[in-house]
Nucleic acid binder design. Structure first.
Lengths: 243, 243
DNA sequence: CGCGACGTTGAACTCAGTCAAAGTTAGTGG
DNA sequence: CCACTAACTTTGACTGAGTTCAACGTCGCG
């Protein structure tokens, strides 16, 4: 029933570095199963340890921190190919929660196997570190955005980033993408209030640049959004390892 | 002339995990030299590759991104024990710059040796990944702070975080710490304007909570600052590996 | 049909940014 | 040793982007 790694639908996406036969075999051994969860399920809990690590295969999720005040900071959006649980794997506690926004299908790895990955497959360990470095890079980008961009710039940037990621995964095309998040999710990701996010969305809609309604994002003016969001129009994402 | 790893003054700090004899010997081989730089030196350049990786031994620095608009986002403050250049090591390009704020002394590692670390010393590779995960965690914290705290809260939090780090490294005690950064640096780290940062500093000074002048930070009301900055008063930092 | 979750809109308020100018400090060279 | 300069800090006045509060609209579901 579970999909074999050899047939993993993600493997061939151009965004991911190709794996050798032997690497695939190792990942297959590393993989202990598959998990399907409903929308709303909490995959990882801030402060808790986790016996499993995951790679998202299908569906969308959210990483977030909950502040003392009850507010929420969305760290980023989880898409297929994303590795979940590194912190629980190496540190002994997650520093943020991960939640499924839609129903999701995930590859399950045994946490204990992480060590064997380092011991026996340095190449894959290297890839894991790589993906941690990429995460760090993306977080840095987000930090810079939230630190220096105003509302409309943040939203424009977020849309382009989300669309580009979606497109690289085959989840988006012709400037359309299913984006079943709530406005509150975006607001929490961008550090804006819900109300202001809503008004900003309206502005972009009225300006004919982007439309996001009923879970569907439509990019109407890609270059325009890039300019507002201070992004290169040629937003080629770097290829990355798949775990 | 260069300090041997065995005698590394950082090794014994309680914040760092102890290393075995064999690990120290390996690090010694990994280490290719020592670098001393003047204040203001740029250690890593955003977008550039770097032949060397460093661990800070003495002095303070800054990691930052430069935005298209010329503004600067300070990602974090570099203190002794921090590993510099992971991104250049695994990806092939730094995503942020690193600059020495004071004169600094650094341990130099050859980038090519990074691979041998993965191949021959999985334990150390694991530590490297660990430290990447810690970085990610800290960035997430910062993101949440900038996304949800107002000016005075951010400054208070930054002071506590800096002091705690300094204290764990033996750079601070009795609520005093040398902090030779400029107000502009703090402003860029917190996503605030210089003017507003300055006014906020004055507020904290007038309130008798913290004083930061002429490069010296004095924490006058630790619990008070924690409360403002939404931090646990018991801010024990987790131990971490030293590379 | 009615309820709850989510989205939309308007009005009042406020935190923080910008502009502009003056005050301090440290370093340099005469 | 002092004068001059450049970098950094401090302060006030003004402005505006974004928050908060509050109400209303819309959609889907039991």
């Amino acid at each position: 029933m579970a999909i074999a790694c050899v047939q993993c639908p993600l493997r061939n996406r151009k965004i991911f570095d190709p794996l050798t036969e032997s690497e695939v075999r190792f990942m297959q051994r590393f993989k202990t199963g598959e998990l399907e969860v409903e929308a709303g399920a909490v995959l990882m809990m801030e402060g808790a340890n986790a016996p499993h690590l995951y790679t998202a295969l299908e569906g969308l999720g959210l990483r977030y921190k909950t502040l003392e005040s009850g507010e929420r900071q969305v760290i980023n959006f989880v898409m297929p190919g994303d590795f979940i649980g590194l912190q629980a794997g190496v540190m002994n506690e997650m520093q943020h929660s991960v939640e499924a926004t839609t129903s999701m299908k995930l590859c399950v790895f045994n946490r204990n196997a992480l060590w064997s990955l380092f011991a026996d497959h340095p190449g894959r360990a290297y890839d894991l570190t790589w993906s941690a470095a990429v995460e760090e890079h993306l977080l840095g980008e987000t930090l810079a955005a939230i630190g220096h961009l105003n509302g409309i710039e943040r939203v424009a940037r977020a849309f382009i980033r989300l669309y580009d990621r979606g497109e690289s995964l085959g989840l988006a095309s012709r400037f359309e993408m299913a984006l079943p998040y709530k406005q509150q999710d975006l607001a929490d990701a961008l550090g804006l209030s819900l109300v202001h996010t809503n008004k900003t969305l309206k502005k972009l809609r009225d300006a004919g640049m982007a439309d996001w309604q009923r879970g569907k994002l439509t990019i109407l003016d890609y270059p325009g959004l890039c300019e507002i969001g201070r992004l290169e129009v040629d937003g080629a994402l770097p290829t990355r390892p798949l775990l």
